Simulated scan of single mutants.
Amino acid sequence: MAGMDLNLLTDIPGLRVGHATDPALGSGVTAILFDAPAVAAVAIGGGAPGTRDTDLLRTDMTLERVDAIVLSGGSTFGLDAAGGVQAALREDGRGIRFGGVNVPLAPQAILFDLLNGGDKDWGRFSPYRELGYQAARAAATGAFALGSVGAGTGATTATVKGGLGSASTVTAQGHRVAAIMAVNAVGTPLIGDGPWFWAAPFECGNEFGGRGLPEFRPEYLTPRLKGGPGTATTIGLVVTDAALSKVQARRLATMGDDGLARAILPAHAPTDGDTLFAASTGTRELHDPIAELTQLGHAATQVVARAVARAIYHARSLAWPGAQPAWVDRFESGKATHA
């Protein structure tokens, strides 16, 4: 698709992405840093979210802009990661100034990856604050890794290894829209027992294998669920360069969250904490706000769905016995490698 460039979140000018990955822990952090504070909002569709500072993003709250968004594994322990990102931002002089003190804003969402077999015996304090700092310091423009990295390191789904994915597009009006998703769902991104993705109708080129859709069979609608309490959540961020208000960004998050439901079945379950942030870097004005926001939301739905599928396509199994097989292990075994 014209204008996709890298087909990543970094196709949006004015932001950087960084990962911190701990293979032994089986977890990690992804930090998205904005070069200038960005208007932001959030939609929370899951029944068991874990978040930090998302109340600031409500449309009835005063503050409109944030310096970063943080995605992390670790369940509620992972909420320490935002502190590490804040530390890096404060060192760089970022944040709102209150009485001579800089206070960077870095809202966060977490996913549950505590039961994936990694070494979670970290002692008194969790490692996530340091991982957050490392992710912020690693943040860069240009290409970044997908799959079993950053917040997607320890992610799983009902059927295959989860991971981190990203995708981008351009609307007819020339606005860029891109998403980054860490996929750790209760449900499945796959149709039946084959290699087909629920997101297949939105695929651009062969970005997640080009397998298309199978001939429909009613049993494909039978729910397949990950076992265990609190073992899920898909989290992410959709960004546009269109200039949006906080209310408009909330609508973008709501429409973008529909992409999650088009890529995972079921989505937004009682034990999912599905959370989607939306942000605007604000470099391109809207000339017809209603029509163009509708187009932006339509694009957001698609890039979120594509990013979910790309997360699975690029994921690799964790390197210990009993780890959940990755898509590549099951359907392209000759290419399978450990992360």
Rank of each mutant, 00 (worst) to 15 (best):
P201C: 11
F202V: 06
G210V: 11
C204H: 14
D193I: 01
A199H: 06
G205S: 14
F216A: 12
A185E: 00
P223R: 14
P223K: 14
E215W: 05
E207I: 06
L213Y: 08
G187Q: 05
G194L: 01
G210Y: 08
R217I: 05
R211T: 13
E215Q: 10
T222V: 14
P223C: 13
F202N: 03
G210K: 06
G212V: 09
V183D: 02
E207N: 12
G187W: 01
A185T: 10
F202P: 02
E215L: 07
R217F: 07
F216W: 15
P223V: 15
W196E: 07
N184S: 14
I191F: 04
T222G: 03
L221D: 12
C204L: 14
R211I: 03
C204S: 13
F216T: 00
E219K: 09
E207F: 06
I191C: 04
A185W: 04
N184P: 13
G205T: 13
D193A: 13
E207M: 12
F202K: 02
G212W: 04
N206W: 09
E219F: 11
A200E: 06
G192K: 06
A185Y: 03
L221K: 09
N184R: 11
A200M: 05
I180M: 15
W196M: 00
W196N: 02
P218G: 05
I191Q: 03
E215P: 01
A182D: 11
W198H: 11
A199N: 05
F197P: 00
M181P: 09
G212P: 04
V183L: 15
E207V: 07
P214G: 09
P214F: 03
E219Q: 15
A185D: 03
P201F: 09
M181T: 05
P214Y: 10
G194F: 02
E203Y: 05
N184Y: 12
W196I: 02
D193N: 14
P218W: 12
D193P: 00
P214S: 10
N206V: 12
A185H: 04
V186K: 05
P218E: 15
G212L: 07
P201L: 10
L221W: 05
G192E: 06
G187Y: 01
E215H: 08
L190I: 07
T188F: 01
G192V: 00
P195A: 12
P195S: 08
P189L: 11
C204E: 15
E203T: 07
T222F: 07
P195N: 08
Y220G: 04
E219V: 13
L213D: 08
D193V: 00
F208S: 02
P223T: 14
L190P: 00
A185N: 07
P214I: 09
G212T: 09
E207P: 09
R211G: 02
W198S: 02
I180K: 00
F208P: 02
A199F: 01
G209D: 08
G212A: 09
I191V: 15
L221R: 14
E207R: 10
R217N: 09
A182Q: 11
G210W: 11
P189E: 07
P223L: 14
F216E: 07
P195V: 02
P189V: 10
L213R: 12
I191K: 03
D193K: 07
R217H: 15
P189H: 11
L221S: 14
I180Q: 09
